[in-house]
Each structure stands twice: as structure tokens, then as C-alpha cells.
Measured scan of single mutants.
Amino acid sequence: MDALKSAGRALIRSPSLAKQSWGGGGRHRKLPENWTDTRETLLEGMLFSLKYLGMTLVEQPKGEELSAAAIKRIVATAKASGKKLQKVTLKVSPRGIILTDNLTNQLIENVSIYRISYCTADKMHDKVFAYIAQSQHNQSLECHAFLCTKRKMAQAVTLTVAQAFKVAFEFWQVSKEEKEKRDKASQEGGDVLGARQDCTPPLKSLVATGNLLDLEETAKAPLSTVSANTTNMDEVPRPQALSGSSVVWELDDGLDEAFSRLAQSRTNPQVLDTGLTAQDMHYAQCLSPVDWDKPDSSGTEQDDLFSF
């Protein structure tokens, strides 16, 4: 819950932080000083300027060897085509990944977070970031790969997607708890209302004896509580940590079903599988986004697919 609360507080303090972009060759504004600060901008989305290598189908939802083989196929196909790589912007948030063309600003792909089953910074092609997700059109699994400016960037994108998945799962947990509370309150309110109706004398007997209905007592009954809980029953509950912020979080049926399955089948359902080692994760978390744009010590960066 700490990640969720800190993310909400950060967004309320400075929503404009989320509009910064990394990996864009110096076009961005001043960047936060450390990885923790940038992680807090996830709610509205972190932007990464990358190059799209392509996509291939895979048979399993996750796995280092599986993704490595898929990336190898994608890279080989991209090299064989001889075409310049498409420059894209990857927007990562707890909602998922939005992929747009840098030149036309046209939407290429919009992947809900619950469809993503794996992401990684490839070991062999260490400047490549990739994720595996279920197609929104059918049940097939797709591996999408992107060329980053350097290994640090690939690791940073991988960690960002993993963190977005974690925050999304926490949102789901909060929403589920809130819905259970509202359902319980609604049920209790309905029981109270039913009890009051059972003990209320029939209207005919009131008229016969000349008694008047006590409207004041009726007004004191917990009807307002019942209506408050039943009027918006169809509205999706939102985490309290975000009250007053500009973010509107809505959970669709697909996300609810997917996270429910994860909660039942996995020990740590909030953790998205990645190909990063503990050492890689520690190294990337210690980086400032400013470091992502620094040239690798191995030599001059080449803006070309064939540089790796």
C-alpha cells in the first residue's frame, strides 16, 4: 500500500511530472533526481522514447528462454528487412502500455495491464526491452520488442512496467475491499429498513384510530445511509488515497477476473515476472533518469539497429 499512497501523494503535489519523457535525446524537461521519484509518476504514465523492432507469436506467457528466442527472431526479421526502425513513445501506467508513433502521434497499440504476463531486458541484446501480452483480438500470446538507447534504459522500462503492474494490483485490492464494505453496509441498511417496515402498523389501523404518522421519526431512520450505499452501487469504487486528485481509476471486468485468478494461483500475485536478476534490479533502481541518457562506457552510441 505504500507504493499506492506515495504515488497518489506525488501526483497530487505535481501532476505535471508524469508528462516528462525519457530517452528522447535531450528533449525532456528537468528530471527527478532518483528512481523513487520517477516511480511516483506512474499514475498518469511515464513516457519512454524507443524504437519498435516488431512482434512475434509465442506459445507460453512467460520465460527467459522463451523471450530470448522470440527477441532473436524479431531482431533477425528487422535486420533482414533493412528498413529504419519506427520511433515510438511507450506510455507506461497502472492501466497498461500505450504505444504511439512519434511522427504521426497515431495510436499503435493499447495493452491493458492485466494482459501483460512478462517483461524483460534481454541478456543477449542488452539494449532490447520486450514484453509478452495476450492479444486483445484473440487468445494468442505476442512478444513485442523495442530497441532502447542503452542497457540502462531497457532495464528502466522493464522495472517501470513491473512497478505499474504492482500498483494496478494494489488498486484492485483496495477497490475489492471498498466494494465488500459497501455491499455489507448496503445489506445491513436493508435489514434495518426491513425491520422498521415489519414493526410499522398498517396504514388502515392508523387511520381508524385517528393517529398521525410521525414524519420526524421517519426522517431519523437510516434511510439516507441505505440510499447512499445503493444509489451508486454500479459505480466502481476508487482508492481513497486518490481522493481529490485528477486521476480516475476504473476497474473493468477483465482486470477484476484476471487479478482474482492471480490472487488464487500465485504466492506473490502482485509481482510481474521479469528477466532481471536481483543485481540488475538493484543497479537500475539506483540510477537517476539522467543516467539513462548518458552514453555507455563501451563506446559511442549508434542510432541504428545494427549497432548491437
Rank of each mutant, 00 (worst) to 15 (best):
W22G: 11
D296Q: 03
V271F: 07
P15Q: 10
R39Y: 05
F171E: 02
A208C: 07
Q270M: 06
L31R: 12
V271G: 02
T104H: 02
K30C: 11
A228H: 08
S135F: 06
S227F: 03
T225V: 05
F306W: 05
E301L: 07
A284G: 02
D253C: 05
L11C: 11
S140I: 12
T277A: 14
A208F: 03
G26C: 13
P202W: 12
N229T: 07
A80M: 06
E177Q: 07
T149M: 11
E170N: 08
A164F: 10
C143I: 06
A133Y: 02
I108V: 13
R95Y: 04
L42P: 11
R29Y: 10
Q163S: 12
G45C: 03
W249H: 04
Q264R: 01
P237T: 06
L215G: 08
H125F: 00
E180W: 09
T36Y: 15
G8T: 11
A164D: 06
D293V: 06
V88P: 05
N232S: 05
Y114D: 02
S245L: 03
L43E: 10
C143E: 09
I116S: 00
T89V: 13
D37Y: 10
H144W: 14
S227E: 11
V75I: 04
D280P: 08
N229P: 03
V157S: 02
Q20L: 11
V174Q: 01
K166V: 03
T149Q: 08
Q60T: 13
C199Y: 15
V128Q: 00
D293N: 13
L47P: 10
L287P: 06
L99R: 13
H137V: 13
E257R: 04
W249Q: 11
S297F: 09
D183A: 12
E44Y: 04
T225Y: 05
E65I: 07
S117H: 13
T200H: 09
R151H: 12
V161Y: 05
R73L: 03
F171Y: 15
S49F: 14
N232E: 06
K220N: 12
D191K: 02
L276S: 02
V161N: 00
D183H: 08
F171A: 03
G299C: 08
K84Y: 03
T231N: 06
V271Q: 02
K84Q: 12
R266P: 02
I113K: 06
L255F: 04
L212R: 14
R238C: 08
K294Y: 09
T41G: 13
I116A: 00
T56C: 03
L213K: 10
E65L: 07
F169L: 02
G45D: 05
T149C: 10
L147E: 01
L159V: 06
R13I: 14
T120M: 07
V128Y: 00
N105K: 02
S117W: 02
M124A: 01
P269S: 02
S307A: 08
L42D: 02
L43T: 08
D126E: 00
D256W: 04
T100R: 06
F48H: 04
E64S: 12
I74Q: 01
Q240F: 06
L213C: 08
C148T: 09
S21Q: 09
E64V: 10
D2H: 02
T89C: 05
D37S: 09
W249Y: 03
M233R: 08
I98T: 14
S140K: 14
A221E: 09
T38W: 15
I12T: 12
K204I: 08
A228I: 11
F146N: 00
L90D: 00
E180N: 13
R27M: 15
L53Q: 00
S245V: 03
R182T: 14
L50R: 00
L262P: 05
S298N: 15
G8R: 11
Q134E: 09
N102T: 09
D2V: 07
A263K: 12
A3R: 12
T160C: 13
D256L: 02
K91M: 07
E64D: 13
L251I: 13
W35Y: 11
L53E: 00
C199P: 11
R261D: 06
F129G: 00
G189H: 05
N138E: 11
L287K: 10
E170L: 05
S186C: 08
P269E: 02
D101H: 12
F129I: 07
Y52N: 10
S14E: 08
L141Y: 13
N268A: 07
S140G: 14
Q60F: 09
T158P: 12
K220W: 02
L193F: 01
C286S: 08
D253I: 09
S21K: 15
G244C: 07
W22N: 03
D2Q: 02
I113H: 03
V128F: 00
M46E: 14
I132S: 06
G210D: 15
G275V: 02
N232L: 05
Q187M: 02
Q139A: 15
T158S: 03
G96A: 08
A168D: 03
S205Y: 07
L213H: 09
